[in-house]
Design a binder for these strands. Structure first.
Lengths: 272, 272
DNA sequence: AGAAGGACCAGTGGTCCGTA
DNA sequence: AGAAGGACCAGTGGTCCGTA
């Protein structure tokens, strides 16, 4: 692998939080009843669902650093029932908006490091693929749960699914238009914006790229070798769809009452 | 769609069975504990798992033919709580081994009809894809649960997942080498073999095809436009893997103690 | 307040086994 | 016995929300 100097950067001075322990006594179930698939992508219906509140947990303990203890098998050791009391689990430093090449100071991580995590995931996927092919098992083409599990088992405990999914579109912009990505970083750093607003701002240039490719954001992802292994984020997909509809409506307004020729949905309006 | 005269054939004189009703009171759960992913593909370990026995059900009722009742929405109506008593649900006729072009007599279905079901699934997938693209939702590339649900909703109640998965490799042979498939059908019909043994016999020629493509059965499926939408069956994948290992072992035996040059795993032995 | 990530949940892939 | 398919289950994709 091409393990990078950046790896070391994130390891110094991690934030800490008390370790939690989960009791697995509640069975999930409830596969009965309603909800069609088609409704899922629609509007905000599902957002209204009640979620069972997680009950506050008792602070507990486990030995951290469950890296490679030399198990020869790939079975997950999800035995959380580690030993002593009072240990604290580390949590990654929060990201801040940094310029390209800039190393974050203090208990922060920079965006070069964020993007490097995506490269690491890609390497883990490649390893999982190699193993799967060798064993004659089905071979993942995307960064799946299996890959995240493999990364964790390989000691990369700082990689996790919610984080990687959260920033996928930022990485996408970095891959697809590095100049635009760099300019955005510099602008948001200068304005003193936080990571959340930088992240939000990454959507728009991507929607414009999709526009230039007939609004097919999947095709955009699949055309890029480092991006094709990532699922297109739901929100980005929805934004592209909304903008396409806007473009279609604008085009329709232009022609007024004249009947549609059938090419308007894929017609080129302005792409931002 | 290219709806076919074969569709009608399966509709006359279906077998019957009493309708069952499922109570959803048992919650599944049990997500605690062991079992790593990697073990799943390995050997027969998982086969030993105990399965909870389903308790015998009370015979109940529902109105059949839940085809297009004119719902304008795609939500599943999985309300099983239909009306009158004493109705009986129909079950498809069993398949028999037929020659190409031969129509099954009596309460049987022939193999042309079986293969036609795969073409119908493909059409349903194409429709699902069209709808998904139009809505800006993620677009399936394979025949998924969603497609089976759509097929059922569209009135094709004779299509179901276990059946289609069961015979996928038979359809694969039909796609990849129609002459060999036809010859096999004729031979097995002549010998009076049942569908099960014909189905078993379809594996071997496919393994030979995989052999000629460097044992990459996924590549074989993906190279064929009508086959790429089907998941490679687990058993076929395993057979290809086993045969590859045999070929490697045989090659290794030939060279004896001489050190490996690294090309043996993909080297060409005989392909049957 | 802004942010990281454990853990949850609906719906999936896969196929067993109660059914006839 | 041979076969069709309802229904189950482990592990997935997706992300909420309790946490700090």
């Amino acid at each position: 692998g091409t393990h990078h100097a950046l790896d070391a950067l994130s390891q110094e001075g991690l934030s800490e939080e008390p370790v939690q322990q989960q009791d697995h006594t509640d069975a999930a179930g409830n596969n009965g009843g309603g909800g069609g698939y088609w409704e899922a992508g629609q509007a905000k219906i599902k957002k209204q669902q009640q979620r069972r509140r997680k009950k506050p947990m008792v602070a507990s303990a486990e030995t951290d650093d469950d890296g490679n203890e030399g198990e020869d098998d790939d079975g997950m050791d999800n035995g959380n029932g580690g030993g002593g009391l009072g240990m604290e689990r580390q949590r990654e430093h929060p990201f801040i908006v940094t310029e390209p090449g800039e190393v974050a100071r203090g208990k922060k991580n920079g965006l070069d490091y964020l993007f490097h995590l995506y490269e690491q995931c890609r390497e883990f996927l490649l390893q999982v693929q190699t193993i799967a092919k060798d064993r004659g098992e089905k071979c993942p083409t995307k960064v799946t749960n299996q890959v995240f599990r493999y990364a964790k088992k390989s000691g990369a405990s700082y990689i996790n699914k919610p984080k990687m999914r959260h920033y996928v579109h930022c990485y996408a912009l970095h891959c697809l238009d590095e100049d635009a990505s760099n300019a955005l970083r510099r602008a948001f750093k200068e304005r003193g914006e936080n990571v959340g607003s930088w992240r939000q701002a990454c959507y728009k240039p991507l929607v414009n790229i999709a526009c230039r490719h007939g609004w097919d954001i999947d095709a955009v992802f699949n055309a890029h070798p480092r991006l094709t292994i990532w699922y297109v984020p739901t929100k980005l997909r929805q934004l592209c769809h909304l903008e396409r509809n806007n473009a279609v409506a604008a085009a329709a307004a232009l022609v007024g009452g004249i009947s549609c020729t059938g090419s308007s949905a894929s017609g080129r309006g302005g792409c931002g």
